[in-house]
Simulated assay, not measured.
Amino acid sequence: MFDPATTAILRVVFDEVCEDVSRYDTAARTHVASRILEAATNGDVSPERLKQVGHEALHDAPTTWR
């Protein structure tokens, strides 16, 4: 469990990384969230590093075809 400050950072980073991703693209959003949480769990809690991890995850994320 993360402290409130870290949780706020995670939320802001996720929102920034996924700002151009549709809310309905749950596969990509879940992939990004998972990678950001994994990085934070491993001690990477700087916003810059988490954004980098999030952007890398977004690049590798599965896409939803419609």
Rank of each mutant, 00 (worst) to 15 (best):
G43M: 07
F14R: 14
L10R: 01
E16V: 06
A33R: 10
D44I: 06
E38C: 02
K51F: 05
N42H: 11
H59T: 15
V45F: 05
D15I: 11
D60L: 13
A57Q: 08
H55V: 02
A28T: 12
L58T: 04
E38M: 07
R29A: 04
E48T: 09
R29I: 02
V53I: 03
T26G: 12
R29N: 07
S46N: 13
A27E: 11
V32D: 00
C18M: 11
R11A: 11
V21N: 04
S22A: 05
H31S: 14
K51N: 12
D15R: 15
K51V: 07
L50R: 05
T41V: 06
L50Q: 04
G54L: 03
D15C: 14
D15T: 15
E19F: 03
A39D: 10
N42M: 11
T26C: 12
R29M: 03
F14Y: 15
A27D: 13
H55L: 11
F14W: 14
A27P: 06
F14G: 06
V12R: 15
I9Q: 07
H31L: 12
V12F: 05
P62D: 10
I36C: 00
L10N: 05
E38V: 06
A33D: 14
E16G: 03
P47V: 09
L10V: 03
V12P: 05
L37F: 14
H55N: 14
E56P: 00
V32Y: 00
H59Y: 14
R23K: 05
T41A: 02
C18Y: 00
R49C: 13
V21G: 02
V13W: 02
N42E: 14
D44W: 04
R11G: 14
S46W: 01
S34L: 13
A57V: 08
R35L: 03
S22W: 01
S34V: 12
D20R: 12
E48H: 03
A61E: 15
R23E: 11
L10Q: 01
E16A: 11
V21H: 01
V53S: 01
F14L: 12
P47S: 13
E16W: 02
I36D: 01
A28S: 10
A61C: 15
L50G: 11
V12M: 13
H59Q: 14
I9V: 15
L58E: 01
L58W: 00
C18A: 13
C18L: 13
I9W: 06
I36E: 03
Q52W: 09
T41C: 01
R35F: 02
K51D: 06
A57W: 10
S46E: 15
V32C: 08
V53Y: 00
H55G: 04
N42V: 08
G43I: 07
D20V: 07
P47E: 15
R29L: 05
R35A: 05
H59V: 09
R29Q: 07
P62V: 09
